[in-house]
Design a protein around this nucleic acid. Sequence first.
DNA 1: AATTATTTGTGCGTATGTATC
DNA 2: AGATACATACGCACAAATAAT
Lengths: 359, 359
Amino acid sequence: MQKNNTPKYQVLKAFIIEAIQSKQWLPHEVITSENVLAEQFTMSRHTVRQAIGQLTNEGWLYRVHGKGTFVQEQLPPARKTIGVITTYISDYIFPAIIRGIENVLSQNDCQLMLGCSNQQVDKERQCLESMRNQQVDGLIIEPAKSGMPNPNVDLIQKMIADGLPVLTLQACFDGLEHNYVILDDVQAGVTATKHLLDLGHRRIGGIFKADLAQGQLRYKGFMDAQTKVGISLAEERVVLFVGDETGKSIQTTQYETLLQNVTAVVCYNDLVAVKLMDIIKEKGLKIPEDISIVSFDDSQLATFSEVKLTSVAHPMEALGEKVASEMLSLLAGTKDVVHEKMLLKLIKRQSSKAIDERV
Amino acid sequence: MQKNNTPKYQVLKAFIIEAIQSKQWLPHEVITSENVLAEQFTMSRHTVRQAIGQLTNEGWLYRVHGKGTFVQEQLPPARKTIGVITTYISDYIFPAIIRGIENVLSQNDCQLMLGCSNQQVDKERQCLESMRNQQVDGLIIEPAKSGMPNPNVDLIQKMIADGLPVLTLQACFDGLEHNYVILDDVQAGVTATKHLLDLGHRRIGGIFKADLAQGQLRYKGFMDAQTKVGISLAEERVVLFVGDETGKSIQTTQYETLLQNVTAVVCYNDLVAVKLMDIIKEKGLKIPEDISIVSFDDSQLATFSEVKLTSVAHPMEALGEKVASEMLSLLAGTKDVVHEKMLLKLIKRQSSKAIDERV
DNA sequence: AATTATTTGTGCGTATGTATC
DNA sequence: AGATACATACGCACAAATAAT
């Protein structure tokens, strides 16, 4: 006869759990007493106590001295909580992204735990640590300072190793194999620049954020499109900046040099474009007659401005929905790897015009 | 000799916990074996096992078969998580409110769990249940459909009874004693209306949302200010609506009747005001020359519109910061009751003008 | 109000199995 | 292979809480 390896107390545990799950024993009902169980299962009371003790710790039962042991009410399985860490939460395109995520998650009975890095890696680490602590069931993160090496990769790696599904948004972590949903920012840069080339512009300027991957890639697209048609990149037509999203760090002289050498400008985002429009207006020039402008993101700003902006549309809410539903796939196990790159379309408005029609 | 009531295994447990807390026993170090402990404490090995078993369940120790029992690494105390349920999250003034909350919480080492009711009480209940389940440490909630009886009061009451600090935002739950940080919407209504009265207007119209407390109270202020100066409220000067925040449900004829009978209009919020301005413009009338408009909230819309809006400023971010810091006080125990009503100020812009200067 | 039966809580002794070094 | 550690298992005794008599 083969030896039975399952301990006696495990057998009893399985029996009790089955009785509870099959609703033979109902919540707050007294269960069979320790002595009776010992007799029924031909084991010592001590062994019965071991089984019941463990089930008590596991939340199946509770004991009352002198009365008996009772079935614990089973809490509904906790909703999954998805941690979301973005660089900003309440400005620009971010509310829309978060709305997209929230929509999909709440429709699928998941919860949203929100963190905000403010583009600071130390704040990002804080958020990561506390979410790891809180045992979120999935993590969606938009890397801070995505153009620079990120010191939090080690922590992310640990979390992935622990089996946590991790998805990055808008950018990737360098030197780490992971899931992502990003934008094809190179293609976006090409699209914006090609639009101006098609309109006949040949001296095209660019303003880009250098410390974010998004800025670097849009800049690459900006260059690629021009190289393809044989335009070499002139130093005086490019302004790179870091830090503040609106380009506060850009000097007035930089704007002036730029504007003297171009007929059109590709702007890193709508915020930069709006600021540039103000400067152009101050100089007495007109948009698009004197200078054409194309920007990225197509945020609210693009249509609120006096001259409505031609802009490469950021999917915003759709991106949020996409990343959230991919996260659900990862959680459900229907997907193992998510490598998504979204293509962007240009929205033509009033700020760009063919050069041969210029006054 | 007095009888010692503390069980032996409790004595051992206390000893072990003390050894860990005082760092005499360090994480992942082997502790004294069961047999030795039994000898040292003159108790049976079984009793030692009882103590160690419980400490294992409580996360102090872990056992490895054949090797020994080890000190479990103590996890840093989990950050407090504050649940926040608002009616919207990504539109209008809500991103700013949430930013305010997030600012204060993250500066105080707390986390934000976000839910969104979309002004639906069933969705609100879902959020409440899942947050209760997730054991948040505090709850900040903006009641949905605040002008109507709320079916979730029972659940909130249970959560309060469980000792959970609960704070409502912008509105209160009827028939429930609780903490709140709200706006003085009556005062806001008075302020808006008094501004128009001071400008000489005597036939003042109003558009208000009837299913939210905020709408009802602003309406009350609107009436109070006029009653005080002896103006009786005429039916044809008031439009009440429900549902969609922008007043989609308002009929064209309602707008026409209103505009024929007034020289100025108090609008429930900036969204309604912007829509009304479009209608006035379509009719060939001018703002503020023909019709003055005052609205509430002073959102981005107020300055993005062609004619910049005179609006009673919603504190937005400051409200978020206020409610978050009050929550921290409740958690710290430095406050028991929070009953805050914030006063609002009027921001004068171009949409309101004295009547005797009218063209 | 006191007694009694039942039930869980604490505690000891013993024996054997099994993993680790 | 043997020593040591934890794991499973049985048996017994008494304490303390509860409920019914």
